[in-house]
Design a protein around this nucleic acid. Structure first.
Lengths: 219, 219
DNA sequence: ACAAAAGTGTTTCAAATACACCCATGT
DNA sequence: ACATGGGTGTATTTGAAACACTTTTGT
């Protein structure tokens, strides 16, 4: 048994949000080789004395200015050849950014971080298209058995806002009354007491999470 | 931005089976430092030009003689300090071994690989106790929404055998009639036509999977 | 008055649960 | 004959799904 091989360990983050009624993904333009000039998931190398979650959060903040969002480990990708330099294992994460906090992108390091519509993506570096597919599948599945959808909304939102999230991600339109019954039965929302006036129609009641930031697993 | 740190990447595998009506985990006694003499999950370092899944399968075969079993990536563990040598990231897997194939253990490299009852484990090396907890949680959860339970049984089994798997892992006793109704409604089993004679009572019908080794996701 | 989204209940159907006795075998 | 685990059906409850009209606002 010989001395074990050395690797660089990277984290790559699939960051989702909803913009203009469409699911969006945050990509950065690579500033150096390999894949210089290509679009890629934000991410970077793990430092000595740093945990994986910590690395993902740090890289996300450095490269895109996004902080304090929902971040969850997705899985690891280590096929030989996934990085032309060789010897790079990536621990993928996925992150959800509320639909309003796009100001975050102002404080960006990597000059060119941009949102892309999920179904109109450019060609991606490395195996990042594969990572994104896995992330998307996880997001879709998790809508059904958890309350992560709230992570895609601002602190206060209407039930229509919430239903829109489900429609956009799952691509189907649930019945309005059944949807509302279902959500309220989860017993995780409370009325703020305010309403949102927005256009030539009846104002909508605003809701917030009873315990913000708590992801509840359903079933 | 400095040159990225180098790591060793390991895979560690939580191998479950059922023995003597109890959930068991396969551990090996470490032959070298660190944690020499302690019990640990089987596993080892990723080689250059090797995929993660491949590494897990290889290490499992080398250290325990177990091959061709269900193997699934669990998640990665990279807290600084999880290995006293530092700089080791572990990609954890979990594996399910059918309740009969214990002969496999004959062909073992690491002289001392042993099954332990899951609720009577020795002190483990590294963060392997944490990995095992995650693996156990996954196993329990996955019983409910997939057909992995079959991976813990030989090719032919009785419905009582199958129910036992659920009882042992979930720690609760489903109603016999409802359980059988539920399983058969999944439409993944077929009768072999044979019966198993075993003791002073009515022989049980034997079943097999219609498409062996296919894990079906339920919901 | 009209357009546009918000809000609201009841009925129907399917799936999960609770529940108790007879059957085939070995000793 | 009896002890042991194998095998079976129905009634009840619960949760999911289908379905259409009234309300509040701005223009």
């Amino acid at each position: 048994m010989s001395k074990p091989a050395s690797f660089h360990v990277a984290t790559d983050i699939a960051v989702f949000t909803i913009r203009a009624d469409v699911l969006n993904v945050l990509l950065i333009e690579r500033a150096s080789q390999p894949f210089k000039g290509n679009w890629a998931l934000p991410g970077g190398f793990l430092n000595e004395n740093e945990g994986l979650d910590q690395c993902a959060a740090r890289e996300l903040a450095e490269e895109t200015g996004v902080r304090g969002v929902y971040l969850e480990q997705l899985g690891s990708f280590g096929d030989p050849g996934r990085d032309p330099r060789g010897g790079v294992v990536s621990v993928a994460y996925f992150a959800l950014v509320p639909a309003d906090e796009h100001a975050l992108l102002a404080s960006t390091d990597a000059a060119s971080a941009r949102w892309f519509a999920f179904d109109d993506l450019p060609k991606l570096a490395f195996d990042h298209d594969k990572i994104l597919q896995v992330a998307h599948a996880r997001l879709k599945a998790k809508l059904d058995y958890s309350t992560i959808a709230f992570c895609l909304l601002p602190a206060e939102f209407t039930l229509s806002n919430l239903q829109m999230v489900y429609e956009i991600i799952k691509g189907e339109t649930p019945d309005k009354r059944n949807f509302r019954k279902w959500v309220l039965a989860l017993d995780v929302l409370e009325e703020t007491g305010d309403r949102r006036v927005e256009g030539a129609h009846r104002p909508a009641m605003l809701y917030r999470e009873k315990t913000p930031g708590t992801i509840k697993i359903i079933r």
